[in-house]
Design a protein around this nucleic acid. Sequence first.
DNA 1: ATTACTACGTTCCGAGTAG
DNA 2: TCTACTCGGAACGTAGTAA
Lengths: 224, 224
Amino acid sequence: MNPLLFDFMKKISYRHIGGKISLNTKEIAAELGMSQQSVSRDLIILEDEGYVVRKRVKRGEEVVLTDKAFREFRNELNIMQYILKSSEEIEIEGILFTGLGEGSYYISREGYVSRIRQILGFVPFPGTLNLRVSEGYEIYVPILNSINGFEVQPFEQEGRKFGGVKILKARLREENVGIVIPERTHYENVLEIISTEHLRAKYGLKDGDKIKVVIPKNQGTDNL
Amino acid sequence: MNPLLFDFMKKISYRHIGGKISLNTKEIAAELGMSQQSVSRDLIILEDEGYVVRKRVKRGEEVVLTDKAFREFRNELNIMQYILKSSEEIEIEGILFTGLGEGSYYISREGYVSRIRQILGFVPFPGTLNLRVSEGYEIYVPILNSINGFEVQPFEQEGRKFGGVKILKARLREENVGIVIPERTHYENVLEIISTEHLRAKYGLKDGDKIKVVIPKNQGTDNL
DNA sequence: ATTACTACGTTCCGAGTAG
DNA sequence: TCTACTCGGAACGTAGTAA
């Protein structure tokens, strides 16, 4: 957003009544803490760029902020809200797809089940939801690795070795779910989600559906 | 707010995980669309001003945005929200006080009563609420004059002349009220509020109480 | 490999003043 | 009176390069 406009809206727009601000450049300058000359120049630029419409009147002028100006201002506001929100949680969108079905085998191993129950407070449904991260959200995936989640130690069972994973608490629709992050994976824009119920059935989900998961950056501690 | 910080937060802070951003100046520069040198200089400045804390690591550095940075960012956001809101309505705070009691006489004159009923849809309680505008809100009062409210024409009754006034629709707590603006007043940081009930009784208001009124800038039309 | 100083071109700001 | 042009100085941005 044009910084001129930004300043102008922040410092002047409260005077915007019935669509107009009635002021002269000297007064505006005083309120903005800049010179009359700069205000004059900036108004010309803002007018050129379609952010204000001006009309000369007796002792000054009327300045009208255009819809474009308000639209961009609101957009800027939305971006800032998103940033503040994303300083606390990450939202990732993905497309549901069917994997190789390995998830359901692994997740049923006792070593995982008991630990997941300890972390998430529920026995995982024997099957995972695979999400292929949508375009534009890939940048958030590596960030998941940096979040302090809950470690599941490697273990052996039935003569097989099962690798360590990290579990992140997350929300999907109204469900508390977990995201399984394999230790030292070459991350591939796929999220594997565990839940206590069969979410495909509960929500009527099918391959190709767009799903969003929200992951708090502060995952709490592992001392329950 | 420091524009450097602003840009930095808007473009980089999504990487802020577990309190840290791990990047080198070249990468930051690429994301911000500026040179490595400028990023370096800006980080030094942001550090000096207490907005970031830096720690050199192997292949770059970790940048921590401080609470101060988030606080100012959030503050900026609040200001912007307020501006957007105040482009639609004005909120004025004032202190309740007891006037000379004239209001109750004037407002009971038939010429006013019928017109107020037409405008606000209720018969005014015979008495007004006087609000002395709080410090910091004075700037909004002259603006009220510019709002297209509802005119009450001057009239004569019982051999006396009653001047024209302008009525603005407003809200006070959950009540629809009116604000009486005398024609060509030398405005004095006092708002006179009319309502359908005795608000002092209904809300237990007493002199010295802080009250807020909200006045929409778009008052609608007078054709009901 | 990464940060940051120097030096210099460009942009921005505002006093003077014209219109 | 008010807006806006000119122009000199300050601030900003970055290539080159040192640390």
